[in-house]
Amino acid sequence: MPLENWTVLIVDDDDAIRENLGAFFDRAGVHVVSAADGAAALVQVAVAKPDLVILDVMMPELNGRQVLRALRAGGDWTPVILLTRTGESSERATAIEEGADDYLNKPFDPQELLARSRAVLRRRGGQVEPLQSARSLRSGPLSVDRTARSAALESRLVTLTPKAYALLDYLITHPGEVFSRDFLLNEVWGYQFAVATRAVDHRIAEIRRALADDPDAPRFVETIPRGGYRFCGLVERA
């Protein structure tokens, strides 16, 4: 599917946001449908069959979370980007656990939302369900049990701090994508302070030690000069 030839459903109870984001996506060549509340969103998903849903969390009556749960419970895996309320990592982790493909905090840059929308569609490709919804993943000798939040190398459990596990989990559920240190810090740690990016390097080093991954010939985590990091192994559901 050419990236611009898709339909997006924008769900937000704020008229100004819905209309102006709609116009913005329209200008980018995307077909736009919209809904002002959760119940209308469920109807639109069934009728318009969008390729992607941009869903605000804070809505009266049926909120974004409930809409997402209703979709997933009914076996509908249309990609969803949640517009979350706060930057707290617990809230974002819950969004992913409940089946969102990505999330963005308000107020955001519309260009960022468009870029993420494209990334989500690209990531999904032909897959019905996102890798984030998998209970366990495998990449060669590495297996990740996402329910137990643990990793094993050749069936032997490896010891990782919770932050290192969270980083590995993020990378392995987005294989092949390059992420900058700033981006990873924001996504995994939930904060963005320039001085803190060394935290990412420290955890990457921990992951490499635990997985016996040679940075010069990586099987799992590759350093992209001036780019950041990416998971370079082939990932499959286990």
């Binding site: 704020d14 100004a16 946001i17 102006n20 804070m58 309320r85 308000k106 107020p107 840059d109 519309p110």
Partner: peptide
């Protein structure tokens, strides 16, 4: 403060982008 400001700023950013 966060709750009341986030929607107007999001809307302004969308308007300006257009």
């Amino acid at each position: 403060l966060d709750h009341e400001m986030k929607n107007p700023i999001t809307a302004i950013r969308a308007v300006v982008a257009n």
